[in-house]
């Protein structure tokens, strides 16, 4: 049986399970994207942790890492380091890379899928909001946020309300220094602000964490072997 015959349909390939309301999502914070210049210094800008971008179909989208497929903090940070590496490689390929402004992964903030799905009741003019698993750029743990706006209120104000509500739902940060950034002193992760909901907390039982890690290893093996 050929390798190709093992490949499932695009939908099955792209979505492996539903993101439950109680599942954690991680929003990764990198420097300098989540920082701003203030008095000639780059300082952390919490308002830049979240972002939504308009899609071709008129919806608004953002990205998270889904805890089911990054079940440990180490795996969350591996995801973040790969994210920064990908941004820097893209800059090198386009000829815009500068070492002084290279992307540096600093840490991750945690929120729940329920916080996303509550946006229609929390924010005026949000018609629907959902988050689902969507493998993107070969990142198995990527989850896609999709928001539909009604268009009855000024969009810019609605965007602010969405980003504010998502930030207000955040725990953390989980901070990290990637191996390639260990020589940076002081590291920008030191500037990350506490999440409004408090420090990161893992509500899973020890069994649930073990099961999540086992499930990740199986799915990741299947993904690497048959679908990449």
């Amino acid at each position: 049986m050929s390798r190709n015959s093992w490949k499932l349909s695009a939908d099955a390939k792209m979505k492996w399970g539903r993101v439950a309301d109680t599942d954690s999502l991680f929003r990764l914070s990198t420097h300098p994207i989540a920082f701003k210049i203030q008095k000639k210094k780059l300082v952390f800008a919490s308002a830049k942790v979240m972002n939504i971008k308009k899609q071709d179909d008129g919806s608004w989208a953002s990205s998270f890492a889904w805890e089911r497929y990054v079940p440990t903090t180490e795996l969350v940070h591996d995801y973040g380091c790969r994210l920064s590496l990908g941004i820097n490689n893209a800059a090198r390929n386009s000829g815009t890379y500068e070492d002084s402004t290279r992307n540096i992964y600093c840490g991750a903030y945690q929120l729940r899928a329920s916080d996303v799905r509550e946006l229609p009741t929390a924010v005026d003019d949000v018609v629907s909001a959902d988050v689902y698993h969507l493998i993107e750029n070969d990142e198995f743990a990527h989850a896609h946020l999709r928001v539909i706006l009604g268009g009855k209120l000024p969009i810019e104000g609605t965007k602010t309300a969405i980003l504010v509500r998502l930030w207000e739902a955040c725990y953390g940060p989980l901070t990290h220094v990637c191996d390639c950034d260990k020589q940076i002193d002081p590291h920008p992760y030191l500037a990350l602000e506490p999440g409004p909901q408090g420090p990161y907390h893992d509500t899973r039982s020890r069994f649930e964490r073990w099961r999540a890690v086992m499930g990740f290893r199986v799915c990741n093996w299947l993904w690497q072997k048959f679908f990449r």
Binding site: L153, P154, E156, G157, T160, A161, V164, E168, P196
Partner: peptide, 27 residues
């Protein structure tokens, strides 16, 4: 609660939001 004024070229959206909920929005 925090106050946010979103200023675009032709509109201002004022948002008062606490960690628990959006309290008020005026455009």
């Amino acid at each position: 609660a925090n106050l946010y004024l979103t200023i675009s070229a032709d509109t201002i959206s004022a948002l008062i939001s606490s960690p628990e909920r959006v309290q008020r929005r005026i455009d």
